[in-house]
């Protein structure tokens, strides 16, 4: 992983004719994690999409060093294919990252023959976790990552993110649930509402 860094300067976000937040700045280096907290509708998901480069900020700019991975509520896998074959497409795109030893920590190795549409909510989430960052991008954006995970899976996922940060990655987590990783700073999006 190349040394990752993400810097946001004076960001503002407008959706429709509503200004969601403004004057938002932060600077994250490898090994750091940021949790964005705030009530529904304050622009947590929009902020992540701006950081990913998928949305243009209304004002301000984002500078990134390193690749960005995004985990959101969607599962980009073909629902009629068995999980193994659906992963095979992303393996061809990413070049690596979907072998049995990479499926095992997420408890997916025995689901390779199960069509994606038969997976449970938690299994779908775990598949999305692997798909979002099998290529080990330097910045991992997580939009409500604990939704749909049971207590045990949630603990395992937080440990996974912890390991990723320890390896020099940056995690930005948008969640209203408590998230437990080392060195996590919190950002209250409500403080930046106009």
């Amino acid at each position: 992983m190349e040394p990752a860094r993400i810097t946001a300067t004076d960001l503002a976000c407008r959706r429709g004719d509503r200004l969601l937040f403004r004057g938002l700045s932060f600077d994250l280096n490898g090994g750091e994690a940021l949790q964005i907290v705030g009530p529904n509708g304050t622009g947590k998901s929009s902020l992540l999409r701006i950081l990913a480069g998928l949305l243009q900020p209304f004002a301000g700019k984002v500078e990134r060093n390193g690749e960005v991975a995004l985990l959101d509520e969607r599962l980009p896998l073909d629902s009629d294919l068995p999980l193994g074959q659906a992963f095979a497409f992303w393996n061809r795109i990413d070049g690596a990252g979907y072998r049995a030893e990479e499926l095992r920590p997420l408890g997916l190795e025995r689901l390779a023959d199960v069509p994606v549409r038969y997976l449970s909510t938690g299994q779908r989430k775990r598949a999305a976790v692997l798909q979002s960052n099998a290529r080990r991008a330097g910045v991992w954006l997580l939009d409500e990552p604990l939704n749909g995970l049971d207590v045990e899976a949630a603990a395992q996922f937080q440990a996974r993110v912890g390991g990723y940060i320890a390896d020099g990655g940056i995690a930005v987590i948008a969640s209203h649930q408590p998230f437990d990783v080392q060195g996590l700073t919190k950002l209250h999006l409500g403080d930046y509402a106009p």
């Binding site: 990913a52 991975a69 969607r74 980009p76 795109i93 979002s132």
Partner: peptide, 13 residues
């Protein structure tokens, strides 16, 4: 809907 285009964009495609 499934976010394929977003995920491919993030991979530089």
């Amino acid at each position: 809907e499934r976010g394929y285009f977003d995920q491919l964009y993030l991979r530089g495609i």
